[in-house]
Each structure stands twice: as C-alpha cells, then as structure tokens.
Simulated assay, not measured.
Amino acid sequence: MTLKTEQLHPLASTLDVATLGGAAAALVDNQVDAGRCVSACLNVIQAGADKMARCVRNGGTLYYVAAGSSGLMVAADAMELGGTFGIPSQQVEILMAGGIPTSAHMPGDVEDDVESLEHLLVNMTSRDCLIAVTASGSTPFTLRAAELAHAAGATVIGIANNTQAALFKLTDHAIALDTPPEVLSGSTRMGAGTAQKIALNTLSTLMGVALGHVYQGLMVNLQADNIKLLGRARGIVQQVTQVDEASAASALTRSGGDVKIACLLALGAQSPELARAALIRSQGHLGPAISRLHSHETTL
C-alpha cells in the first residue's frame, strides 16, 4: 500500500508546466487544505494537551522526538515553551535524529539510527510525556522512541499524516492528520509539515491554558529575558491591572519579573509571598487569584 504522503496529488504533474502564478496558487491551496485536517483531531489534541500539562505540573519531562522536517517542527515548538509559557528548560528535551542541525545540511540516514535512544531515554518514567512526530508514521527513530516511552509507562502522543501509521499502535493519544498528497510529491515539509505545526501549536498552547499560563489571551507566564519581552511583560501587567507604566514596572521589579505576581501586586496584594501563595491555591491560574483579591481575602 502506497502511503498517502507519497501519493501523487492531482495537480502534481502540472506544477512545472503551469505559470509561476498557477504553481504558487496550487502550493498555497494544498497547504491550506492540509491545515484544515487538524480540525478533525481536536478532541485527541485536547486530551494530549491535558496530559502534557499534568506532566509539567508533576515535575515530569516533555520529550519531543522526530527526524527530518518533522524534527524541525518539534524543535520549533519545544524551543518556544520557555519564552512563551515559562516552562523550565530542564523539563523539555528535544530528541531529533542526528541532533539539531547547525548548518543547512540535514542528513537523511540518521532517521534509521536508533542506537542512541536507549541512552537518551534511560531516565524516562511514568511522569514523563513523549510527543512523537513523523509524517509517514513509520520512521524507525521515532517508532523506537515511542516503544521505549511506552515500556517506561510514559504518556505517548503521536502525530502522523497517515491514518494507519504504525506509530499509533504505540500511542496513548493518536493525532491522525489526514492530509492530502503533496503537490510536490513526497515533500512533507509542506502540507504535512504545516498540519504538524498547527497541531503542535495547538497542543502546547492548550497545555499553557491548562497550566494557568494564559489569561484573557495574554502570556502571563512568559520569561522576559530581552528588551522586547520586558516591554511585553510590562504591557501585560498594565493591560490586566489598568495601572500606569511606572506602576507596572515597579510591580515587575518587586516580583522578580514574574508577571502573575506583578499583576497581583499592582492590584493591591501586600507582598510577593502572599501573591505567590494565592497563585498556589489557584493552581497557577491568575483569574481566581484576582477574584480572591477583589473579594478582600485577608490572606492577600
């Protein structure tokens, strides 16, 4: 059986004889169609995101595993978790076949190299979560990682672009992205990769929501480690609390750069320690902590 990701798209044979404008339209439309396929997976994405949040909350590690262009998708998602949601770097591992490229050359034979995984996943436990991504669903490196994670009792979330993927036999949450064949046949960095990125974006952002790191559409647990993000953090405090810029900056200084605590301080919490205690009671969610403050709980 020919994998769907390797089948010919009806427009594939016309790509090189069409006008550049016609080829561009075919390529864009194909990727848009691929992106729409993610909508059919919302329930399983939601369940997977909840497990990712539990993993982080319980001190576990998120392991992102893939090869080739899928590896670039997982690396992009994993590397954003710290800055966007304040997930500690020690709780995120990126296992890309051959390692993350440092040049424009990305070797293909490394996706068959499974020997290193025994060592890389030796400390995996049932607290951890593996996010495994492969367009074909049969990449040896990714399948072996899923096998090891499954044996360790870790939660396995699988993303593949073939609905009968071998990967899904090893997963707790199977995200089957039924994307159409590529207009450039087999180039899964395009439609398949687009759908993978949307699924990963949704998974990690829902995880952030579940952890309480999103409030009214704002990244209230971001790590402000550059001028741009410091300005964003100050703007978030202003937007949530309606204080002026100087007051927001002062609250951020008192909170040590913690946006949630800064918001509570700007709203009248007596100390960073009391604000932090309020957040612990609300499991990290800012909204309930603000509600307690507005109800004049003396513990704040």
Rank of each mutant, 00 (worst) to 15 (best):
A152E: 09
A149R: 01
L177W: 09
A97F: 04
P180C: 09
H119Q: 14
L218V: 06
E147V: 13
I87K: 02
I100Q: 06
N201P: 06
A104N: 15
V114L: 07
A199P: 03
V110P: 07
A165P: 11
L130D: 01
F168H: 02
R144S: 04
L148K: 09
G158C: 06
A174Y: 04
M207R: 00
D113A: 11
L222Q: 14
P101I: 10
F141M: 08
S89W: 05
P140D: 10
T142P: 02
A146Q: 01
P180I: 02
I131P: 05
T155M: 04
V183L: 02
Q223S: 15
M219N: 08
V110N: 11
P101Q: 10
G137S: 04
A151R: 13
H150T: 10
E118C: 03
A195L: 03
Q216C: 12
L130G: 00
E182G: 09
Q216T: 13
G191T: 04
T139E: 10
G83I: 06
A135M: 08
A210M: 06
P140K: 10
L121S: 03
L148V: 12
N221S: 15
L200V: 04
E118S: 13
A145R: 00
A149W: 00
H213P: 02
A146R: 00
A151K: 13
E147R: 12
A176D: 09
G217S: 12
P107R: 10
G193I: 04
T142F: 04
